[in-house]
Write a protein that binds this DNA or RNA. Structure first.
Lengths: 345, 345
DNA sequence: AGCATCTTCCAAACCGGTTTAGCGACCGGT
DNA sequence: ACCGGTCGCTAAACCGGTTTGGAAGATGCT
């Protein structure tokens, strides 16, 4: 009764061939007679043999895994619906190809660099995802230096050798602005994400441009950090202004929900006196009161595409950037005409 | 100009020793003179040599990684704050020990079993975490069969050879019940998690027992699925009852928030006419209106302890179960005396 | 028959570490 | 001067696959 798992040698002996033949048969390479191949595979199956991933990794100098380094502050990790959904999408693709996902969660930016270095130095992964692109993102040069293939989510603002999965938040934000303008709003503020996030500034630009296109001047904009506390703070700030907005576009749902609570605590009716939109369209958004108008994104779909792109890149088939469908506005009950509609002449 | 990374042989040659000596020196084993050891390490550093994780994995028959199979439905993954926080805690410990976390996200229960099987067959991990324990959890037998060390979060209801990180939700729920009873509530309902989750039924039992201890009969209890939609549905159901409760204890914050929205939409004031408590104490809980009374848990802390326990187990130091501090009630504004206070005699 | 060619398979090297067996030098004791 | 033991190190086996070079046998061509 052999306790340990069978190796390629056991299979070779049982099939009466050499281990090279078994390897060839398994990998469907030419040079082994069809009948022999069948016999080998039958024996392998009977013995319950699976090639050792470890041995294969050493021999092929491949890890058969991809990495994801996550550098969000811990308190935000839980609130952010993006990341689990993205991972789920990634997994769907990886599983089909017997690849694994190695995760690293770090807190500081300094630690993040080390995260990539370790992943690369250990040869734990064959490539990585680059999320939350930042302005002049230093990680791009780092990954080039480490010779670690990567796929970025979004288009970096610096030239890169890496394919990108292009997600465009701007149409969603623009749609939100148009929606509010059509309702009659003239003072539309924005609570943005952190300034150094590229998607944060993209959303901000979209907000600004959409207002300009409508012939309005952008209202106040305050950068926050995607947290509920940050959203609340930003909202207080905006509502304290002499010329406070009649509508606020938040860069994510959590901040928007916290903002709605702040408005209510200050005695403002949402949407009667203040309209609010979120971003992400989390499951909860539809189930709060009033239901939150938000922008629906598809992080799981992005994850799938990003994974496929990365695997292709690793296999040497560096493809072009992939464009994803734009985010869509979902109108619910948190938006309504402003309290004192602007009078048309 | 050598492009490829140095191997142990390069170091050995440069230091004028054999590769065995380098290995000994690196691993701090006896049998190499102190001076030689220093010289070897200096050379290694100069050459920028790091031992190949892949070679080491093959040689040691160890993966130097642990696994986590996640079987939550995709739409819940994003809403649940537990999982990212837990992972962050795990990572903090793993990083110190140059271990990696291999993640697998699956959707169906059937796929979950395959997830573990693959992880084990590939030898990708040396052990796994077992989360979301279920009633008569079949995964325990599976892991035993696969000879895969594991650590469970919570105490299984079947005998296991695995150490457990004991997290007790019950004191938190009991505290919530007591809090509500002290406020004068006599009809306290419960919206539970799925019936087959062990922690779901633990919370339900705690709710029931706490009410009994207070001399009250348990109000209605409805099982749901931790989603906002489920929470809303359950709340409608409870409020439709002839004898509807004056307070509802939800098994997580998301359901509680959705429940609050339902109450409001039906014209009920929270907490004036209905008190509500959540569970998890998500960041958002403190920033909605009214701020949600909830039970604070420490998933990140659990992750850290679970990781340490698992690594110890893998190293052959199977420790005893670890008891974690009980969950704490955080009282906020969503709880208040019931509309028609019970008259004391 | 003789020779080139193709097919099928094997033996051995290789990936980059860890670990064991053993060898020579040095030590103290008698 | 001899013996036994420890120290410091090397050579070689090993982990379990993949890949290369070449041998043996079958086939085709002249």
């Amino acid at each position: 009764m052999s306790q340990r798992r069978p190796t390629i040698i056991d299979v070779a002996r049982a099939a009466g061939v050499s281990k090279g033949a078994v390897s060839f048969a398994l990998n469907g390479r030419p040079g082994v007679a069809e009948e022999t191949r069948r016999r080998i595979l039958a024996v392998a199956k009977e013995l319950g043999w699976t090639p050792s991933h470890r041995a294969r990794a050493l021999s092929n100098s491949r890890a058969f895994a991809v990495g994801l380094v996550l550098a969000r502050p811990p308190e935000l990790l839980g609130a952010d619906p993006f990341f689990p959904a993205f991972i789920a999408g990634v997994e769907r693709v990886l599983a089909e190809q017997s690849q694994a996902l190695v995760l690293q969660v770090v807190t500081s930016q300094r630690a993040e660099e080390n995260g990539y270095r370790r992943l690369a130095a250990d040869g734990r992964v064959d490539g990585v995802f680059l999320l939350d692109l930042r302005v002049a993102d230093p990680r791009i040069a780092l990954l080039e230096e480490l010779r670690l293939p990567a796929v970025t989510l979004g288009r970096p603002d610096v030239p890169t050798p890496f394919p990108a999965v292009l997600v465009d938040d701007r149409p969603g934000i623009a749609a939100a602005v148009r929606h509010l303008v059509e309702l009659g709003h003239r003072h539309v503020a924005h609570v943005a994400g952190p300034d150094d996030f590229l998607h944060g500034s993209a959303r901000r630009d979209a907000w600004e441009n959409a207002l300009r296109d409508a012939g309005l001047s952008p209202g106040p904009c305050v950068s926050s950090d995607f947290s509920a506390a940050g959203g609340a703070r930003a909202t207080h700030h905006l509502l304290d202004l002499a010329d406070s907005p009649s509508a606020i576009i938040y860069a994510n749902d959590v901040m928007a929900m916290a903002g709605m609570a702040v408005a209510r605590e200050r005695g403002l009716d949402v949407p009667g006196q203040l309209s609010v939109t979120g971003f992400d369209d989390t499951e909860l958004a539809a189930h709060i009161s009033p239901a939150l108008t938000s922008v629906r994104t598809d992080p799981s779909g992005w994850g799938g595409v990003a994974a496929r792109t990365l695997l292709d890149l690793i296999d040497g088939n560096g493809g072009p950037d992939v464009e994803m469908p734009p985010a869509q506005l979902v109108v619910r009950a948190s938006t309504a005409p402003p309290p004192t509609p602007h009078q048309s002449p």
